[in-house]
Design a protein around this nucleic acid. Structure first.
Lengths: 215, 215
DNA sequence: GAATTAATTGAACGTTCGTTTTATTAGTGT
DNA sequence: ACACTAATAAAACGAACGTTCAATTAATTC
C-alpha cells in the first residue's frame, strides 16, 4: 500500500508531536521506539521520517518549542510594575500555571536533556538560564529595595524554581486541590521564603498567612 | 581465556555497583548498555550476570539500597526531642547531607523509576512514602503546637522535599558555596517557609535571618 | 484527464541490545 | 598434588533498534 485516504501532512505531524510528548514523558526518550510512536499515531515507522529527520531532531524540536513557549508566556505575563512583590507573584503564578498546563512537556524538557547533542543541549540550557535570570533579577531588586530578605540570590532562585516545578510530580487536576488553591499556597510559601514584607493585591487563599507577609 | 589473576567476586561486585550508579546517572538506565558497564569495570559483559541476574535487577538493587540508606540515616539522625523546630532542622540537615553525599545514586532513584516493574516500583514508592510521612508528621505536630503556620501539610511537605532534593542539580562540592553554607541557607529558607516562630540552637549562617525565625 | 506532487507502506539494512552457553583458568581446601 | 569451586572470557542467540529505499496510491494542479 501507499498513501492512505484522508491523509494530511499537517495533521499527521501534529499527531506525532502530541504522541511523542506523551510517550516520552511516560516511557522516557531512550525507551520509546520509533515503531511504538508510529503505532500510537496509527502509521508506519518510516512515515515519521517525513517530518523529523532523526529521533533526536524530534526530541530537540519538542524541547525547544517548550522552552520558547515558557519564555513567551512570561514575556506576556510580566507586569509593568516595578514592585518586586508584584513581579515575584506574577512569576510564580505564570510558572505554576504553565507547568501544570504542560506537565508532560515539562517532564520531557527536564528529564531528557542528556539525550541531546552537546550543541543542542547548550541551546536549551541557554533558554533555561535566561528564564531563571528573570527570577534572580526580581529577587535582587527586591532585596536591594528592602522588600525581601535573602541570603543568596542564586541559591534562593534555584530553590524556588525546584519547589515550584515539583508541582508537576504530584499534582493531578481534579483531585484534592484545585489549581487556584495550589497556586495560592505556593504564592504564600514563596513570599514567606523570601521574607517579603510588603503586601500586594492578590486575593488570599484558605485563611492563614505568614507573619512576615500579608497576601 | 577465563578467570583472571587476582580476580575477586566481592571486589568485582562492588566495582559493578559503583560504575553502574555513575553510568546510569550520567547516561540514563536505558542508554547504558551492559557492555559499556562491563568495560568500565574492566570485565566482559557476561561476567556481570554472575552478580545480577538481569539489568533490571541491578537497577532495583541500587535503588532499594539507596532508599534503605536514606531511611536508616534518618533513623540515626532523628532527635529524641519533641520540639518540632529541632526535629524539622534535623530532617533538613540529614536530607541535604545525605543527598549531596550521594548525588549520583539520588539521581538514579529519582529519574529511573519508570524502568522498574510494577511490583518493584511499588516497593520503592512505599519506602519513599514512609520517608515523606516523617516530614508530614513533623509539620503537623509543629502546626498543632503553634510552632509553624502551614496552609496544607501534604503540599508543604512536597514543596520542601522538592526544594531540598533539587540541591543535587546545581550543587558541586568545592565551588562557590560549601556544604555548610548551603545547609544553613536551606535551613533558613525552610524555617521561614513553614512560618516557624520558635528558635532553636543551631548556629547562624552568613548573617541575615528571617523576621519570623531566629536561627 | 493527464501530469505532478504529497503521503505513506512494506521490506530491508546493518548495528546493537540483553542474555545464555560453554570452555577455561585462578584460587582453595585437603 | 589433586579435586573442587569461583570467576571469568569468548562466542553466539534471537530480538529489537534507528534508519533508508523503492514502490504505490491519494490529492492537487493545469
Amino acid at each position: 500500500m501507499a498513501r492512505t485516504t484522508g491523509s494530511d501532512g499537517e495533521k499527521t505531524e501534529a499527531a506525532v508531536r502530541e504522541a511523542a510528548v506523551s510517550l516520552i514523558a511516560r516511557l522516557g526518550y531512550e525507551a520509546m521506539s520509533m515503531r511504538q510512536l508510529a503505532a500510537e499515531v496509527g502509521v508506519q515507522a518510516a512515515a515519521l521520517y517525513r517530518y523529523f529527520p532523526t529521533k533526536e531532531d524530534l526530541l530537540f524540536t519538542l524541547m525547544r518549542e517548550h522552552m520558547e513557549g515558557l519564555l513567551n508566556a512570561w514575556e506576556a505575563a510580566r507586569p509593568a510594575s516595578a514592585d518586586p512583590v508584584t513581579r515575584l507573584a506574577a512569576y510564580v503564578e505564570n510558572h505554576i500555571a504553565f507547568h501544570i498546563e504542560r506537565r508532560h512537556a515539562t517532564h520531557v524538557s527536564n528529564m531528557e536533556l542528556r539525550s541531546l547533542s552537546h550543541e543542542r543541549l547548550t541551546q536549551i540550557l541557554k533558554m533555561r538560564t535566561a528564564y531563571e535570570k528573570e527570577l534572580r533579577t526580581i529577587l535582587r531588586d527586591g532585596a536591594e529595595a528592602g522588600a525581601f530578605e535573602i541570603d543568596d540570590t542564586g541559591l534562593t532562585a534555584m530553590a524556588l524554581i525546584q519547589m515550584m516545578t515539583g508541582v508537576i510530580v504530584w499534582f493531578r487536576p481534579g483531585e484534592r486541590l484545585s489549581l487556584a488553591e495550589v497556586t495560592a499556597s505556593y504564592l504564600s510559601m514563596t513570599m514567606r521564603l523570601v521574607g517579603a514584607t510588603i503586601s500586594h493585591g492578590t486575593a488570599r487563599p484558605s485563611g492563614r498567612a505568614g507573619d512576615a507577609v500579608a497576601l
